[in-house]
Design a binder for these strands. Structure first.
Length: 422
RNA sequence: GGAGAGGUGGCUGAGCGGCUGAAAGCGGCACCCUGCUAAGGUGUUAUACUGGUAACGGUAUCGAGGGUUCGAAUCCCUCCCUCUCCGCCA
């Protein structure tokens, strides 16, 4: 969320950002509402000041055993007027907030302006695309043949786009989770968090999923609780309403969680195999940093995510997402895409974003630069490190052998207890 | 699910319906004193919105939302959360 005063003072800039993002939000009411709000506010505050003053007088008069009836009657009227004006203020503020809460973050200057994902800029590629001397199979065929995944079982117990990992497939997922967590904890200095997989409305607001994207979330009406679409949500909000000390930052958290997404509007897309699921596993990294350092931390975060792919020896590229493609809350976002020979395309396995103060303002995560200084909002960042299903796709497809077996990436062999899946 | 206790500033913790934005302590900051170590003294120290170039004002905020009242941290109602005990269950 952007600061109200910032929007007021930089209205053109905000409008430009909205346009560049191809975000449909209509800002035309903002200025009117903002001015209306301040108008009512100054009116009602004057009346409250008067009421406060007269109330003191009444107290004095009563203390001296005088008759305050006249003033009390006057103030009774003022009180009623205050009540009506307060209602108006609230109404206007609600309307204003509806707009404010839906305004996306301002893209950083280094974000390419673009109209669609076509305009994302490839910053680098790493690794060699494997050349197979046989016709590569897609992962769903490999997985089914090796009994790693039960696609029908998932569909039966839950519905389409839910899968069940079985046997070595389940263990491969667990191996990946352990490998990634250990890497981030031991090599990259993150602290492991195992958060709730279910969160309340306020928490979803804090990271920006609400109010705009409610239809993408699984929701329990009875409790007004939501299944998390990413660990970013509970982990970032873990520090909501906190006042951090400058010296405790940066705070680095990593967490494994399942992620639940309704994928509304994506029906019929990527229905084969593991490409797009309603539930998937992911290891996430979250950072809370001093605003001065957040862009450097963003690059380091990207590196931490890349390390996973490099360790797995999977070829990938880094995209700098253009204005039309970055997420609502992000000021800048790199996507990591792995190449997979079976499906013959790039697959997104990580988004690495800097949110600057956009989330911390919503979740009220602050710090003091030094003792006695004014509180400021921290900057938050996060990156997948990585999402499992597409990583598994890439492993199965890129490591497949002519005989139908799959070699296990070296770094996973210890976790999986074997060097070949067959 | 049943019974009880409680939610106040960066933290701990007081607070008869009116001079309480909120005692006290801790912590922080500034200064002073102290010839060592340790300590001691004085002052100062919330946030947001809003008006103003500024100086400086105004308003709000004691879990949330309503209500009573001229006036609510303080009284009433509803809800949320935390803790303790009991029951049930991984």
């Amino acid at each position: 969320m952007l600061d109200l005063k910032f929007i007021r003072d930089n209205f053109e800039k905000v409008q430009q950002a909205v346009t560049n993002r191809r975000d449909g939000i209509d800002l035309s009411q903002f200025t009117t509402l903002d001015e209306e709000r301040r108008g009512y506010l100054s009116q009602v505050e004057k009346m409250k000041a008067q009421r406060n003053a007269v109330s003191l007088e009444i107290a004095q008069i009563k203390k001296n055993k005088g008759d305050a009836q006249q003033k009390i009657t006057e103030m009774r009227d003022v009180g009623t007027q205050i009540k009506t004006l307060d209602d108006k203020v609230r109404q206007v503020e609600d309307a204003l907030f509806q707009i404010q809460a839906r305004i996306p973050n301002i893209p950083h200057a280094s974000v390419p302006v673009g109209a669609s994902e076509e305009d994302n800029v490839s910053e680098k590629t790493w690794g060699e695309i494997p050349i197979l001397d046989f016709e590569p199979k897609p992962h769903w065929e490999i997985a089914e043949k090796l009994n790693l995944i039960d696609f029908e079982g998932g569909a039966k117990v839950a519905g389409s786009s839910f899968v069940t990992f079985t046997g070595k497939g389940a263990k491969l997922a667990r191996a990946l989770i352990n490998f990634m967590l250990d890497l981030h904890i031991e090599k990259h200095g993150y602290t492991e968090i195992s958060p709730p997989f279910v969160v309340n409305r306020q928490t979803m607001f804090g990271t920006g999923q609400l109010p705009k994207f409610e239809e993408d979330l699984y929701h329990s009406q009875l409790d007004d609780l939501f299944l998390i679409p990413t660990a970013e949500v509970p982990v970032t909000n873990l520090l909501a309403d906190r006042m951090l000390k400058a010296e405790e930052m940066p705070i680095l958290y990593t967490a494994y969680t399942p992620c639940f997404r309704r994928e509304a509007g994506a029906y019929g897309k990527d229905t084969k195999g593991l490409m797009r699921l309603h539930q998937f596993d992911k290891v996430e990294m979250v950072k809370f940093v001093d605003p001065e350092t957040s862009w450097a931390e963003h690059e380091k975060l990207l590196k931490d995510a890349e390390d996973v792919l490099q360790a797995l020896k999977l070829p990938y590229r880094v995209l700098n997402l253009c204005t039309a493609d970055i997420g609502f809350s992000a000021a800048k976002c790199y996507d990591l895409e792995v190449w997979s020979v079976g499906v013959d395309r790039w697959l997104e396995v990580s988004s690495c974003s800097n949110f600057e103060a956009f989330q911390s303002r919503r979740a009220n995560i602050r710090f003091r630069r030094e003792k006695g200084a004014k509180p400021e909002f921290v900057h938050t960042l996060n990156s997948s490190g990585l999402a499992l299903p597409r990583t598994i796709i890439a492993i199965l497809e890129n490591y497949q052998q002519a005989d139908g077996s799959v070699k296990v990436p070296e770094v996973l062999q210890g976790f999986l207890g074997t060097d070949i899946l067959k």
